[in-house]
Write a protein that binds this DNA or RNA. Structure first.
Lengths: 229, 229
DNA sequence: GATATTCATTGACTTATGTCAAAAGCGCGT
DNA sequence: ACGCGCTTTTGACATAAGTCAATGAATATC
C-alpha cells in the first residue's frame, strides 16, 4: 500500500530527492506482524532488510538453553536486519515483534542498485551502521566491565534523558525484557530496584513507574564510583 | 612515502580503478607506532580513520578502575576508527599498538568526498562495518550467554580454523591479552586451561603452545552442551 | 465476579568467577 | 651462571549473581 507517505519520514532516506523517494517506494513491500511473531531467525538467509513503520521490534541472541540477550529494541523509522545485505551470509540474530508492528521490507538486490546511484543514501546507511557499532561497544562495555546495578542505573538515566531529564519514568518494557536487555534475569532486577529504593535513589511503585530521587547517586552507580550496599 | 604500493592490497579498496588508488594514496598519511603506544583514546575527536599496514592494534574499552575489554585486534589490511567519520562525535574506544605498527591515516573530509564519488568504495565500507557488527553480536552473545570455558573453547577453535583445522596452535597474544579479549582475567584462563588438560581436551606446554586433543569435546563446550568438571 | 494465568517479589541456596597473595617458572642482561 | 622482572600458576577466600521454589499481586478470561 501507500508506502510512499512513510518513506520521506525515515531518517535513512533524508536528503534524497522526491524521485528517489518514489523509486524507493516502488521497490518496498509492507508487512504486518502481530505481538510475539517471529520476523526472522538467526541463520536465516537475509534477502533484504526492514524498517519499522509503527510498533516495536526486538533483535536478540538466544542460548541453547533458551536464555536471551536483547541486542536492541527498535521503534518507528529504525532499520534492522541490514547485516546480510552488505556482508552476505545470514542473519546474526533473531527478530521478533514486541507488539503489533508494521514494517517495510527492502529486497536486497534492488536496494544495492539504488545505493550505487545514491551517494547520500550510502552515507546515511554508513551513519546508521556506525551508530549501531557505537551502541554495541557500549553494550559490550556494560556487560564486561559493569555490574548489574551500574547497567540498570545507566538505563534509567538513559530513559530520563530521552524525556529531557524528567524524573518520573515509565518503563516501556516488562521487567523480563529489561533483564534480557541488561544481560541478567528478572529476579536480579527486582532485588536491585529494592536496594535502590532502600538507598533513596529511586522510588518504585512496583509496576512500571519509577521516580528518580537522586540523579547524582545514580550517575555514580552507573560509572562504578559507587556501590550498592 | 609510497603508500601507493599498499593501497591496492587493502580489501577496503578492492574493485577501485588504479586512478582511484592513486587518488587515495594522495590523501593518506603514514604513521608508525611503537609497542604499547596509544593511537587514540576514547572520547578523542575523530578526524579520520586508519588502516593497518603492518603490525597489530588492539581496540578496547577501559573501566574506571583500569580493567580492559578488548573489542578487537586488527592486523594488516584492516581498518579501524571509522565510527566518528560516519556517525560524527568521538571515538567510542581506545586504540593502542600491540607491537611496532605502521598505519595509514585517512583524513575524514577528503575520504567523505571520495566515497561520494565511488559507489564501490561505499559498498566496501558498508561490508566492513557489517562484518564488524556481526562480530560484535557474537562477542555480546559470548559475554552474556556463555561462561568462560565456552568462550575459551570457541577461541581455540577459531584459531584452529584459521590454520585450516590444524591441531597444534600457537597463541598469538599473551594470556593477559587473551583474558581481556574474552572478558575475564588471566587467573581464570589459567585455571580453565588446567581443567581442559585434565579432561584431555587439550595439551598445553604452559606457554603459548596448545594442542587440541578432542575437537568435538571443545565444540560441545563452546556451544554449552557440555560443562567442565 | 470468581478463577485462571501471567508477572513480580522474596528467600534460601549454589556456583562461577573475581580478588589477593604467594610461589614458581622463564627470559634477559651483566 | 646468577640474580632481576615478568608472566603464569596455584591456593584460600569473597562476592555478585544465578537457580529453584514459594508467595503475592495484577491482569485477563470465562
Amino acid at each position: 500500500m501507500d508506502a510512499i507517505k512513510h518513506i520521506p519520514t525515515i531518517p535513512l532516506f533524508q536528503g534524497l530527492t522526491p524521485e528517489h523517494h518514489a523509486h524507493v517506494a516502488s521497490i518496498v513491500v509492507e508487512k504486518v506482524y502481530r505481538r510475539n511473531q517471529v520476523i526472522f531467525s538467526e541463520g536465516d538467509e537475509g534477502n533484504g532488510f526492514y524498517v519499522v513503520i509503527s510498533g516495536r521490534v526486538k533483535v536478540f541472541k538466544l542460548s541453547p538453553d533458551g536464555k536471551e540477550q536483547i541486542l536492541h529494541i527498535l521503534g518507528a523509522g529504525e532499520p534492522f536486519g541490514e547485516v546480510p545485505v552488505f556482508a552476505g551470509e545470514r542473519f546474526p540474530a533473531h527478530a521478533e515483534a514486541l507488539e503489533e508492528t508494521r514494517v517495510i521490507f527492502f529486497p536486497r538486490a534492488s536496494f544495492a542498485d539504488l545505493i550505487k546511484k545514491n551517494p547520500s543514501l550510502a552515507m546515511n546507511m554508513l551513519a546508521v551502521l556506525s551508530r549501531r557499532l557505537r551502541r554495541f561497544s557500549a553494550l559490550i562495555e556494560d556487560l564486561s566491565l559493569k555490574e548489574v546495578p551500574g547497567r540498570l542505573s545507566a538505563y534509567l538515566l538513559y530513559l530520563s534523558d530521552k524525556k529531557n531529564r524528567e524524573t518520573s519514568l515509565t518503563l516501556d518494557i516488562s521487567k523480563a525484557q529489561l533483564a534480557s536487555l541488561l544481560g541478567t534475569i528478572p529476579e536480579t532486577i527486582s532485588r536491585i530496584l529494592t536496594r535502590m529504593s532502600a538507598e533513596e535513589l529511586i522510588e518504585s511503585d512496583g509496576h512500571r513507574n519509577i521516580k528518580i530521587l537522586d540523579r547524582p547517586g545514580l550517575e555514580e552507580l552507573a560509572s562504578g564510583e559507587r556501590k550498592l550496599l
